Amino acid sequence: MTPLAARLFRKGDEDTQRRLAAAQFFECTALTPLALEMRKADDAESGFSSSAQLPAPNTLIEIMLRGKRMAFFCQQHPEQGHVAVHAISDEGDRGIHIGWRATFTPGSGEVSIDEEYTTSKEREDAAYIGLIFIEKLLCIINQPGLVERRARDTDKRILREVKARDYEPASPKWHECHIRPGVHGSEGEDGGNHREHQLHYVRKHRKPSLGPDRWIDGYWRGNADLGIHFKHYVVHAPG
């Protein structure tokens, strides 16, 4: 389990422990700048990408942001077609903070935010922004060849406790995600030579030739060995 997930397991009740034992874990701190870049670049009107699928039905994504560990417990619900996300943060001496709960549907603009955890407009906005961030992380993880998953061993004390409590066997490995070195994106995507360009994001865009409301998902292309190029976007109000 990732660091915050292991802390949650030790402090959690039986239901929490069973849910965590059945999950796959991904530490994605190294992908955070890329996800934030995508969030800034893409048009919110395009909705959530159909590529934002979970690596496993129960997936915990963990990051370190501004010195704070945050975890997003995600569950795929094939029957309803949506992904449920539960945000949790480690507040240090103040303990673990239960944040927001919300769902989104890949390939659509459908969002549902649990009002029990979002008692103000500010917290509701934070939950929506958090959903978009998770969508972007999932798109990065799912882009072919872009991410290297480095296997790490789950704490043996947790594995022993899971076995002793007769829970579903926990995964003996969790994964630390990094950008894989080398060239990404096919040569045909822009007709150029990716080796001459840093890794950069091609924002989501409409393609009228495929239909009036057809969106092409954004993707990363270029040579990661040359570094990563982040753009500066200026958003203007319509009209």
Rank of each mutant, 00 (worst) to 15 (best):
Thr2Lys: 00
Arg7Val: 10
Phe9Lys: 01
Glu14Gln: 10
Thr16Val: 13
Gln17Asn: 07
Arg18Phe: 04
Glu27Asn: 05
Thr29Lys: 06
Ala30Pro: 05
Pro33Ser: 13
Ala35Gln: 04
Ala35Val: 01
Leu36Tyr: 02
Ala41Thr: 04
Ala44Trp: 09
Glu45Gly: 04
Ser46Lys: 09
Ser46Met: 00
Gly47Pro: 09
Ser49Lys: 05
Pro55Lys: 12
Thr59Tyr: 02
Glu62Val: 06
Glu62Pro: 12
Met70Ser: 00
Ala71Asp: 01
Gln75Cys: 05
His77Tyr: 09
Gly81Asn: 06
Arg94Thr: 02
Arg94Pro: 00
His97Cys: 08
Trp100Ser: 09
Arg101Gln: 13
Thr105Asp: 08
Gly107Cys: 10
Ser108Trp: 06
Ser112Phe: 12
Ser112Gln: 14
Ser112Trp: 13
Ile113Ser: 02
Glu115Pro: 02
Glu116Pro: 02
Thr118Lys: 00
Ser120Trp: 01
Ile129Met: 12
Phe133Val: 00
Glu135Cys: 15
Cys139Ser: 01
Pro144Asn: 02
Val147Arg: 00
Arg150Thr: 11
Asp153Met: 06
Asp153Phe: 03
Asp155Met: 05
Leu159Met: 13
Arg160Lys: 15
Ser171Met: 13
Pro172Ala: 07
Lys173Trp: 05
Trp174Gly: 03
His175Arg: 12
Cys177Asp: 14
Pro181Gly: 12
Pro181Ala: 07
Gly182Ser: 14
Gly182Ile: 13
Ser186Thr: 14
Gly188Trp: 15
Gly188Glu: 14
Gly191Trp: 06
Gly191Asn: 08
Asn193Pro: 13
Arg195Ala: 11
Tyr201Trp: 13
Tyr201Cys: 11
Tyr201Val: 15
Arg206Gly: 13
Ser209Pro: 03
Leu210Glu: 10
Leu210Thr: 00
Pro212Glu: 05
Pro212Val: 05
Asp213Ser: 12
Trp215Ser: 01
Trp215Thr: 00
Asp217Ser: 11
Asp217His: 05
Ala224Ile: 01
Lys231Ile: 11
His236Arg: 12
